[in-house]
Amino acid sequence: MKAGRLERTVGLVLGVGAIVSVALLAMGIAGMWAAHVGPLDRPFPPFDLGRLPVDLASLKAAGFLWLGLLAVILTPSFRVIASLVGFAAAGERRMVAVAVVVLAAICLSAALGAGG
């Protein structure tokens, strides 16, 4: 992959991720309005990966909100994966190692968060 092209590809991944995230969040907010749920209502639905497909299938606001928030949080990780693939294709071993360390740090964060 030519230099410059990699940057454009990675930029595209970020741009698409941002648009998809915002679209999902907007659908979730529309669902909140439809269900007369206020942002300051308590308790808020907890994050539960197992419930996500069920909430999405039943068109619940919480499903779209959590999927949108997940898309927001994971978009930078997709950018790192795209970079990793590009660096590997270009034979930049040092940058491949850097990308692996960044991904490992993100995974460790998730593991520590879930483990706490």
Partner: peptide, 20 residues
């Protein structure tokens, strides 16, 4: 993102507030 994952799994993100 690294910080947000900790908040996400520890109940520190309110979707009703964060999304709007």
């Amino acid at each position: 993102s690294a910080g947000a994952l900790i908040y996400l799994f520890r109940g520190g993100i309110d979707p009703y507030v964060a999304a709007p």
